[in-house]
Amino acid sequence: MSTIEQLVAIKQQVEQRYIDQTGVTGIDVGYKEVGGELTDQIAVRVHVARKTDDIPPDQRVPLEIHGAITDVVERAYELHVTSVPARSLLADAKHYSPLQGGVSMGPSRAIDDSIFAGTLGAVVIDNETGSRAALTNFHVAAVDSTGQVGDRMVQPSRIEHGKVPQDEFGATLRLVLSDHVDGAVVSIDEDRQTSCDVVDIGGVRGTKPAALGMAVRKRGRTTELTHGSVDGISATIQVPYGDGIGVRTLRDQVSVTAATSPDSVFSDHGDSGSVIVDEQGFVVALLFAGAGSNTVGNPIAKVLQELNVSLCTGGPDGHH
């Protein structure tokens, strides 16, 4: 029986071979699926856009790789940002004062005649200035390659009838789209009050790494408070970012499945930017993409490091 560490090591040895194949969308270590249900058997999982038997023998995933059980799961990833004119999703359209995590936000600008919405995940502290700021995704704040530092943001988003400039709360400070992180930090104007809480979750206590089987929740603009569990770790996935950026490969990602999968979802379009939090109030990941009832987040330690911010903690043993 291989340990999780051994499985991750095996996955890392073979991942490039599979990631380079047509139709493969990711590879991770997680629970094997049988008949659409997750089992408690841990496997090296190859993710494909569509399962088919029509695969050349040399590209088939063997039943075992270096002694590790394998699995093939069907997952086509997409960014969980939303725009109109597009399908209109139920969403939290409320104006929040104080500004806090788990709420609708979006750029003041329109991009190609569309307006966009995502989630302000949490209030953070800018390590350079000590000021409070807002954490979300690169693709929420910048949308695409045309976004830049200084772009103004509104809460709620313009889709929820946020008004420019009355509902603007700040401007993009930093944008990162790297091998591990799809992140952005947005300044918060001095006249806006802030809270370290996340709506429906309360104060966050700090961070910890995601672990297989960990129960988690998130609060986002579209599906609001949802519950799930970590079903995959060390995920390398490929996500299309559209014109100007193309398909990006992100590594060491966290995979989450909805609590009553496959009937419900953990996140949907507009929830990008939400923080994924464990039952004790520790943040484990920053939500950015999904596939069906599955959601993917960036490991929070990498997010905070690459954006040079710290979580604003106001939990039972936190500080302001």
Rank of each mutant, 00 (worst) to 15 (best):
V44F: 05
V44W: 05
V44I: 15
R45W: 04
R45E: 15
V46A: 08
V48E: 04
R50S: 14
T52W: 00
D53W: 05
D53K: 12
D54L: 13
I55M: 14
D58F: 14
R60P: 00
V61E: 10
V61P: 11
P62D: 12
P62G: 11
L63H: 10
E64K: 12
E64T: 14
H66K: 15
H66S: 15
G67C: 06
G67P: 06
G67L: 07
A68W: 04
I69H: 02
I69F: 01
I69C: 01
T70W: 09
V72Y: 06
V73P: 00
E74G: 08
E74W: 03
R75A: 15
A76R: 13
Y77N: 11
E78W: 04
E78D: 13
E78F: 06
L79W: 04
L79V: 11
L79R: 13
S83L: 10
V84R: 11
V84N: 10
V84P: 00
P85C: 07
A86K: 10
R87Q: 15
S88R: 13
L89G: 06
L90V: 13
L90Y: 09
A91C: 09
D92E: 06
A93G: 09
A93W: 04
A93Y: 04
H95I: 15
H95P: 12
H95N: 14
H95S: 15
P98L: 11
L99M: 14
L99K: 03
L99S: 03
Q100K: 10
G101F: 02
G101C: 06
G101E: 03
G101H: 02
V103R: 00
S104K: 03
R109I: 11
I111H: 11
I111D: 10
I111N: 13
D112I: 09
D112S: 15
D112C: 09
D113C: 05
S114I: 01
S114A: 13
S114F: 08
F116R: 10
T119Q: 02
T119K: 02
L120S: 06
G121L: 12
A122F: 04
V123F: 07
V123C: 10
V124Y: 00
I125Y: 06
D126P: 15
N127H: 12
N127G: 04
E128A: 15
T129C: 09
G130Q: 08
R132M: 12
R132H: 14
A134R: 01
A134Q: 00
L135A: 07
L135I: 08
T136L: 07
N137Q: 03
N137Y: 01
F138T: 02
H139P: 01
V140Q: 03
V143S: 10
D144A: 02
S145H: 12
T146D: 14
T146W: 03
V149W: 01
V149C: 04
D151L: 07
M153S: 09
M153C: 10
V154R: 01
V154M: 02
Q155V: 07
Q155G: 03
P156G: 09
P156W: 05
R158A: 08
I159F: 00
I159S: 05
E160L: 05
H161S: 14
G162Q: 02
V164T: 14
V164W: 02
P165C: 03
P165D: 08
P165F: 03
D167W: 00
D167R: 00
D167V: 01
E168K: 07
F169H: 08
A171L: 06
T172A: 15
T172R: 10
R174W: 06
L175H: 04
V176D: 03
L177S: 04
L177M: 04
S178E: 04
S178R: 01
V181L: 01
D182A: 06
G183L: 04
